[in-house]
């Protein structure tokens, strides 16, 4: 059998938005930018807004990052052909992409609160969103997870959170509820409060 090595990563560079969100970059292409909306119509479950920023090791907010999220629907089903447990909400894409606000760097996702999804051994994970960050200066896209601070009970038994040795870093994975249906999630690339990233 022919086994190949994965293509090595290279930074997304300063102009990732030309390729991935051209309309945001001022280049009118396609029928709008992919991932700009996660809803095709009325969706099931609690609709939420997640907003936040990516910070570098000096505390500066990145103005040239691109964030993608991937998550289950409100029932905990992924809108994917590989989802075999049921049919996900047809109006929910599960995938969002944000270039961040050009003035503030704040990314925003209009999404739904995900339901619980089983871990490999069948135990239920706490509601969470998979997050992927690329930017100039990031050599390999960074994977992390966003959990919800207000899901205290589910978080306490989450198989991944349970296995994190440095308990004081767990808050770096928690979105804070700032208003009804509004969550704040900041990503710190380096230093004090550095987000836990996953080799997953």
């Amino acid at each position: 059998m022919k086994y190949l090595k994965e293509s090595p990563s290279q930074t997304a560079g300063p102009y990732v938005h030309i390729g991935c969100t051209p309309n945001f970059a001022g280049i009118r292409m396609y029928d709008g930018d992919l991932g700009a909306t996660m809803k095709r119509g009325p969706v099931q479950g609690e609709e939420i807004v997640v907003t936040g920023a990516v910070h570098d090791g000096m505390g500066a907010v990145l103005m040239d990052a691109m964030i993608e999220i991937w998550q289950a629907d409100a029932a905990g089903l992924y809108p994917s052909p590989r989802e075999v447990r049921g049919r996900a909400d047809p109006n929910f894409t599960g995938w969002g992409r944000s270039a961040g606000n050009p003035e503030t760097g704040l990314f925003t996702f209009d999404t739904v609160k995900p339901g619980q999804v089983p871990w490999r051994d069948g135990t239920l994970q706490a509601p969470h969103v998979t997050v992927w960050i690329v930017a100039r200066g990031i050599n390999l896209g960074l994977h992390t997870r966003m959990y919800f601070e207000d899901e205290t009970e589910a978080n306490a038994t989450d198989p991944i959170l349970k296995r994190i040795e440095h308990r004081n870093r767990i808050p770096t994975l928690m979105a804070r509820k700032t208003a009804n249906g509004v969550y704040r999630f900041d990503i710190v690339l380096q230093g004090v409060g550095e987000t836990i990233f996953f080799d997953i």
Partner: peptide, 11 residues
């Protein structure tokens, strides 16, 4: 300034 210092967590 954009590189995490901690090793990524493997799962």
């Amino acid at each position: 300034m954009r590189s995490p210092r901690a090793a990524p967590l493997s799962f």
